[in-house]
Design a binder for these strands. Sequence first.
DNA 1: AAGAAAAATTTGTCTGGACAAATCTGCCTC
DNA 2: GAGGCAGATTTGTCCAGACAAATTTTTCTT
Lengths: 247, 247
Amino acid sequence: MEDLKRSAKTPRYVEIFEALRADIGSGVFAVGTLLPSEARLCARFNVSRFTVREALRRLQTEGMVSRTQGAGSRVLRDTPSGVFVQNYRSVSDLSQYAAETDLEVLKVEETILCADVAGRIGQSEGETWVLLRSLRRTPEAAPLAMVESYVPLRFKAIAPGLADSAGPIYAGLARAAGEEIERVDQETQALPAPYHVADALGVAEGAPVLRILRRYASKSGLLIASFNWHHGGDRYIHRTRIMLERE
Amino acid sequence: MEDLKRSAKTPRYVEIFEALRADIGSGVFAVGTLLPSEARLCARFNVSRFTVREALRRLQTEGMVSRTQGAGSRVLRDTPSGVFVQNYRSVSDLSQYAAETDLEVLKVEETILCADVAGRIGQSEGETWVLLRSLRRTPEAAPLAMVESYVPLRFKAIAPGLADSAGPIYAGLARAAGEEIERVDQETQALPAPYHVADALGVAEGAPVLRILRRYASKSGLLIASFNWHHGGDRYIHRTRIMLERE
DNA sequence: AAGAAAAATTTGTCTGGACAAATCTGCCTC
DNA sequence: GAGGCAGATTTGTCCAGACAAATTTTTCTT
């Protein structure tokens, strides 16, 4: 049992959240180890399980701990460390990024475009495209991004090989199509992680993730569109330089 | 009382969350109106308050409802609508963005740089800078971004006037300093909304938000750095075009 | 009619319990 | 040693209730 000074305003679970965060930061609970079980934390702070779970939920959405039914709560990181940085402002930067990381194909399947995706990639709802789902990793095998690439149906046969070939997916496709990329643009959003993304990246469902949609177009139209789902928090920082133009 | 088909796997609060989301989408609960109270929803779905609150929490993190103690749960939006889009790839685009939106100064104060901010803007921990906190709004007064601008101490006197003057903050500062912006770069991250940001943007604490840090440098060094906190979800989409270079 | 006080409503915080589902541990068998 | 089974541990889901705090509505007073 342990007593914390009780402010009149801040809820108890915030105090416990901050106490645990401080303990993690100071190394009392080392990265990679398990936190005490909920029952033990209840005893330590002398509160009910609801209060402890509320505190743990906050640690989870901060990305500091992962929680698994049956296994316990594991400390993922203590401070903003292990930052992976991507820096690009041109397609050659994109190529280099692809060359320095590994891509593992998770699934290839035909899919009917839903209204949301269709609208975002400028196609009609109900069309059939190929969805290539893959996982991009650092050389150390840490998951970096879950990539969902939408490819026209006529490329279905070669789709699985695109990830294995050297270089980025869009380059392989452009080569296969005998066309050149003419335009690339992107849309960036912060979203709560859906089930399948949370699973692939190893974050909590609903935790903040960065989604970058890149559209690669040739002269004849959209060649490929890919949603890149990245870690939220400090684990992924997206760097860009902005062009200057003198009047 | 109302019965939903009970799948063996999906938790009850997910079913209720989806039922309410569908009702909001189909207009049963219109945007701007209040949802039924928790007690009423308990009766309708025949579950405890815990289960209803868990469902409402999800609606909140999706950004579809806001909840206020004493007042109730209000529907904020039904579908991915009202998207505000920012499209820039150069400083002139940034200027236009500033010209089309309003900036309201919330607070101006001296602040000692913490390790995190100092590291990110390339300064030493413990230095004193001026923190200019402001809120950028659409012409319809909807909050668009919470902006935290860090300005060197020597500009303290003119800091409050920077937001009111025509054009973007960095332009006013460059004029006052008699220097020209030489470099602009940015870092983008998805983060859980901290207290003060959630409050300013009207989203739930911990909900995904997009943070864009822009650094404006003149020949003599960093002139101004500003953290732009944007809505998560579909309410804010950050668009960029990527430069093409032919080899 | 206007303003202040009281009451009702609604969400926030928190307790103490129960069972289910997933995982881990140790023992047993082969 | 390998594999499988049973039990213990741990988190997930859910209930019924209590009081606090914020807001809205009503009532009362002037």
